[in-house]
């Protein structure tokens, strides 16, 4: 697809100036919050609250000091939150992707009993708001003694019906039955066929599902907020929410948490931005499929 795009671009380069100017304004709108965070994470709290120019630096630019404060405040809890978020995103993302790839392939390529019915149920599940599940899951987990453990966050995020749906559509379209049959005739087992023939063909969709589920886990707030009470297990979203609450009560004991929250927000968005930019090639290909045709 990238080939086709660039071929098109070569054929008729398009540079409507008014459109470009419009785009310029849009980019400014989408970037202003980032700019504000980048500028204001350099300030201390008098600079923040008393400063006149909110979109520019004050005389005192202290990124290093704020960063150091961020990673040492409360025994370095922030670093722990980032690690937790990473763990939840990786474990939840990879687990959900493995399950979704297998199930999507299964639904697409095998005619098994109750297939249509099960798939319809999975599609129905797309419409169940995930948060409606949190309260009962919490009580179930509390009976099992699983609340306030990492499993309380990881296990529910293994569920990704949309991933199954996406993989189903992709496997259906991108993995021709003929190739599979040919492999079977050559004596390859089902599992080997899956790994050696089907999986490579499904790679763009796999990366997409992986990214989508990792992002979903990384962004999750409601579930860990409900499940965890030990702040050493918090992901960074819940942790910053906690700081927001503590700071709202002016209650950090001489440290103004507001500067830390701004710096923390900045640091927390960096990993995902890097992941997205570096994996661009894969996920853009994956998004264009999946029922979108």
């Amino acid at each position: 697809m990238t080939d086709r795009t660039s071929a098109r671009a070569r054929r008729r380069p398009q540079r409507y100036l008014p459109m470009q100017i419009l785009l310029g304004f849009l980019v400014i709108y989408f970037l202003v919050p980032f700019w504000w965070v980048i500028v204001n994470s350099s300030k201390d709290s008098p600079g923040l609250f008393g400063g006149d120019n909110t979109l520019w630096f004050t005389d005192k630019v202290d990124y290093f000091g704020n960063l150091q404060e961020l990673f040492t405040y409360g025994g370095g809890i922030y670093g722990r939150w980032i690690l937790n978020s990473t763990l939840y995103a990786l474990a939840g993302g990879i687990g959900a992707t493995i399950l979704a790839v297998m199930a999507g392939y299964g639904f697409a390529k095998y005619r098994f009993a109750a297939r249509r019915f099960s798939f319809a149920i999975v599609l129905g599940a797309l419409m169940v708001p995930a948060t409606a599940l949190v309260i009962p899951t919490f009580i179930m987990f509390s009976r099992l003694g699983l609340t306030n453990t990492i499993w309380a966050v990881i296990l529910p995020s293994l569920l990704n019906p949309f991933g199954v749906y996406l993989m189903h559509v992709y496997a259906r379209d991108a993995v021709p039955d003929e190739i599979l049959d040919a492999a079977r005739v050559d004596g390859a087992g089902e599992v080997r066929t899956f790994f050696q023939i089907a999986l490579p063909l499904m790679r763009p969709a796999v990366v997409t599902v992986l990214l989508l589920s990792a992002v979903a886990s990384w962004n999750n707030y409601f579930l860990p907020l409900a499940m965890l009470s030990d702040n050493r297990l918090f992901p960074v979203t819940v942790g910053l929410g906690l700081w927001q609450g503590v700071a709202s009560a002016n209650n950090a004991g001489g440290t103004s948490l507001w500067s830390l929250i701004i710096m923390g927000a900045l640091v927390s968005v960096i990993p995902l931005i890097i992941a997205f930019f570096s994996l661009q090639r894969y996920w853009r290909g994956g998004l264009s499929v999946g029922g979108l045709r």
Partner: peptide
């Protein structure tokens, strides 16, 4: 084919039952 289909779908099915159907029923 039945068997293979369910083997591929099964793991997801278990998670689906445990973290979607069961909580819904419990709620």
């Amino acid at each position: 084919e039945h068997l293979m289909g369910w083997l591929f779908v099964g793991p997801f099915g278990i998670v689906f039952l445990a973290f979607l159907i069961a909580p819904l029923a419990y709620a």
